[in-house]
Design a protein around this nucleic acid. Structure first.
Lengths: 140, 140
DNA sequence: TCGGTATTGAAAACCATTTTCAATAATTAT
DNA sequence: ATAATTATTGAAAATGGTTTTCAATACCGA
């Protein structure tokens, strides 16, 4: 139950545990797809009706700060969040259902070294994202 | 002079050539860094003082539709645009000055095949972006 | 249990983007 | 060239997402 771990993380960093935060954490931690603040709000309100959208924004902010979630960039927009991957991982997104998968094992060292040499840049970071259709969505 | 080509493209697609559009095209086509609508507005107004911000938005929309520019995703935000790369190209961004470079020659086939097999996804597309410091900025 | 204080939700403010609209200017047909 | 048609324009208003303000509440350490 990672939701508990997230709450522990929040607590250890001096943040209080409230029903509002529990509801948000519960939803985001469980989700296999990237959710926008409003989506989190709608889902979490089923658990905690009094929840305010403002609190969702504030909680997402803290979760991102603790690297428990990360922002997902997509052609349609960049406001959605998912549970963060661990270590150096990349995203694989289903273009149909929005499911998010992490993968690692990319070896871009050869490429980055080549580009660095060719351009004179010092390369510090890279973003790699794959888009496609998950197994379930391929069946339609 | 590619700015002329952009104007031709606009014209060929049924759009009229106006001073406002000429000013926007001039700025965006020349820029080596990604510009936000407001940045384009500020720069283009030096050439055409009467320009309205609304027209900048509308012109960028059309340029994107014609694939002459593309949106740039960055940690700080995703509202900026640059001249589009040709064919299958990826971005290299300077984290200091914002300069944008294109590169090609990435070969991710092996990786995508591997990930496809491992996850069951049908992979259709990929985004790759490198971040670093350009030669000029390394000297500081 | 109590007290200090972080957290809350509502309302207002904010900012980027889009829509509306009447005036203007680019193109087409004459 | 000129006139007629209609896309385009900028200003103002509207919108939508996000942030700030603020008084009331609830968490948590003592």
């Amino acid at each position: 139950m990672t939701a508990e771990l997230w709450l522990t993380q929040l607590h250890e960093n001096g943040y209080r545990l409230t029903d509002a935060r529990r509801a948000v954490v519960d939803i985001v931690e469980k989700s296999t797809r990237a959710l926008t603040p409003v989506q989190v709000y709608d889902l979490a309100r089923r658990k905690y009706r009094a929840l305010g959208l403002v609190t969702v924004y504030r909680t997402l902010e803290k979760l991102e700060e603790l690297h428990l979630i990360q922002r997902v960039h997509q052609p349609q927009g960049c406001q959605a969040f998912v549970s963060a991957g661990h270590g150096h991982q990349h995203l694989l997104l289903c273009q149909n259902c929005g499911r998010v998968e992490f993968f690692d094992g990319d070896d871009l060292d050869t490429l980055t070294r080549y580009i660095a040499q060719k351009t004179g840049y010092q390369i510090n970071e890279h973003w790699l994202q794959l888009f496609g259709l998950c197994m379930d969505c391929r069946k339609n």
